[in-house]
Each structure stands twice: as C-alpha cells, then as structure tokens.
Design a binder for these strands. Structure first.
Lengths: 138, 138
DNA sequence: TCCATTTTGACAATCATTCTCAACTGAGTG
DNA sequence: CACTCAGTTGAGAATGATTGTCAAAATGGA
C-alpha cells in the first residue's frame, strides 16, 4: 500500500465533479425540503444542467455521507435539504400551504428519551404539524 | 329536507361490502405494518380475493376515518395497520421494522400550543421516531 | 321488486426512482 | 504532454407502487 493508510472499508473517495459541485451548491440556495425532481429542475434553470439520474445518485451519496437530510413527503416522495445546523419542524397550512418553521427542544428531548427508554439507538424523527392558518379561516 | 338533518358536508356513509369487511378482518390478523400489496396477497391466500385497486381504496378510506395507521417505509412504500383508538405515535426500528406505540401528552400540548401561537386551527400532526432497536444492534 | 347510487375489478396510465451501458473525465504516471 | 483506468455521467429503458377509467355488479331504501 502507498504512503497513506485508508479506512478499513476502502471506499474510493468520490470525485469532485462539476455535477456534484452544482448539486451541493443549489442545496445552499434554499432552506426547506425539495424533491430530487425539483432540484434537477432548479439546476437546469440556473444553467447548470445535471442529468436526473445523476441528481438522484448524488443526493443519495450525500445522504449516505450525512451531508443532507432525507424525508418522505406525505405522498411518499423523497425530499432533501442540506443538513442544516438547526433542526426544526414545519407548521403547514393544509389549505394554502403556508409554512412556518418551528423548533422545540422539548420535543427533541422527549423523542430521544422515549427512544432510549426502549433501547433504540441512532434515533431520528419526523414531525409535521398541519392546520388552517389565520388567512384561510374565512 | 327530510326528517333527519345531515352534517353540513353530507358524506354518503360507506357501505359495508364483502371486500371492506375482508380488509378489516385481515387487519386483525397481524399487529405490525403491512403494505397494501401484502394485504392484497393475504386476502387472496385466505380465499377472500379483493382487487388490488379496491384494497388501496379501502385502506385509504379507513385511514381517512382514522381506523388504520399509515406510515411510510424507508423506501417510500405506504404501510398500514389497524390502530388503537387512542392517539399515539410510533417508534420504528429502521432495520427490522419492530414498532412500539408511544404517547406523550407533552408533545400533544406542545404542538397545539405552537399552532395556536401562530393562529392555526384544526390542528393535527404526525410524528414518527426511527432508530435501531436493541435486537438489531450487533 | 325496482331504482339511484355506490363499489368493484381488470387494465391502462402515472410517476418517482433505479438500472443499463456506452461515452466521458479526472488524477496520476512516464 | 500522451496514456490509462477507475469513477462518473446521461439518455432512455425498466421497475414498481399507486391512481385513474369505466362498464358491470352489489347495496339500501321506496
């Protein structure tokens, strides 16, 4: 082997290609969750076209590396966003879609506590709140 | 109008057909989450064939009525199971699927509080916790 | 029983996601 | 710089869950 030892499970180390840089870059342009299709669309619009399959592959790669969060929208679509420093949830109007980002240490603590009580590790959670916003309350 | 007043949004009241009874019945034969396809399969095996489309429709109907819980497996498939009458959430093992029902007044209070703070009404929420269960921890 | 309405089921249509595979690229070497 | 090779890409086919279509069948009430 060469001068530098590698990790036991020698993974080839992803190459920094134009496409990967582009995906990483768009991810910085929004703070909420977007589908792979939307991200592919955004890339095209900003003149940095990346094949849809590549967008999927890149997003998956980044998810494996822990660089993006993956969630499932209510209709089963995978949605992604850069792994933000602040973890938060969404309060969504079921009528007009208006979204408010909310956060609550209490919930975070509660979920990890519950999980720990049952011996679960590597805990993550999803929480969305739906309601009718003031503007839609005719 | 006739003798009995109806709800403002008059919904026709689902009919108790053989197919619906069959779906409701298989749901009692297992305690964990199954996909619509699996349920359709089970029905066929026990000699109560129900069309796949009908299984989907029935499951959706029951979900709307709050008679079943719907979740998304990690690969985006919708999975169902009969639910207890009490409002609760799920702690799911992302490896083997083992599920624990959990509840927490604190979370309920927190979500309605947050929603109220922002003027949202008719509030509902979804919360799932994912982790690795003790049995799946090497 | 007869009718209006709801349901069903076989099959087509969607749609997100993954697979295939030949062409292309980046990084290191001589 | 030319060369090589494993890692990548993209267009399009393939997959698979879910939904839509619509004529035929079942249900509940008059």
């Amino acid at each position: 082997m060469t001068s530098t030892d590698r990790q036991p499970a020698e993974r080839p180390a992803p190459r920094p290609t134009r496409q990967r840089r582009a995906v990483a870059q768009v991810l910085t342009t929004f703070a909420d969750f977007r589908s792979a299709q939307e991200i592919h669309e955004l890339l095209g619009q900003q003149g940095d076209p990346v094949g849809l399959a590549t967008v999927y592959r890149t997003l998956q790669l980044m998810a494996d590396l822990g660089e993006v969060d993956v969630l499932r929208s209510e209709d089963g679509e995978a949605i992604y966003r850069r792994c933000s420093d602040t973890h938060h949830h969404h309060l969504v109007c079921r009528s007009c879609g208006a979204t408010v980002e909310v956060e609550g240490p209490a919930v975070e603590r509660w979920t990890s506590g519950i999980a720990a009580d049952h011996g679960y590790t590597d805990v993550a959670h999803t929480l969305e709140i739906f309601g009718t916003c003031p503007a839609c309350r005719g």
